[in-house]
Design a binder for these strands. Structure first.
Length: 103
DNA sequence: AACATGACCTCTC
DNA sequence: TGAGAGGCCATGT
């Protein structure tokens, strides 16, 4: 059921941050949560809404791991590789591709 | 108002 | 290095 508003304030904040992630860069659920002032799980719930045009695939699990369930995981990996992320098996170096806002 | 759920994270063995 | 258990906290019922 809709709550009246299409999305909550928290969701809008999450989307706002995710939208700012540049191509070829990634951010973990935990980091996004830090930025918007909430926990990692809430970020996952928010991204599950997945609005059109949102680069949701640039949000990954800690340590450069795809935490997305089902076939969506493959889609995400394809998107990331297309932006230059080089996977090492099923993981990639999160430290190397992490979006550093200060730069 | 209370309970169950979840695209997570961190600590321990 | 890898696997398991606990903790968190907003959302939906």
């Amino acid at each position: 059921m809709a709550t009246g508003r299409g999305q909550t304030t928290l969701e809008r904040r999450v989307y706002g941050v995710v939208r700012r992630i540049p191509s070829g860069r990634v951010l973990s659920y935990g980091d996004v949560g830090r930025l918007v002032g909430t926990g990692p799980r809430q970020v996952g719930v928010a991204l599950r809404r997945c609005p059109d045009g949102l680069p949701w695939y640039r949000v990954v699990g800690c340590g450069g791991v795809i935490r997305t369930p089902g076939e969506t995981a493959d889609v995400q990996r394809q998107h990331l590789m297309a932006e230059g992320v080089r996977f090492r098996g099923k993981r990639f170096s999160y430290a190397a591709y992490r979006w550093d806002q200060s730069r």
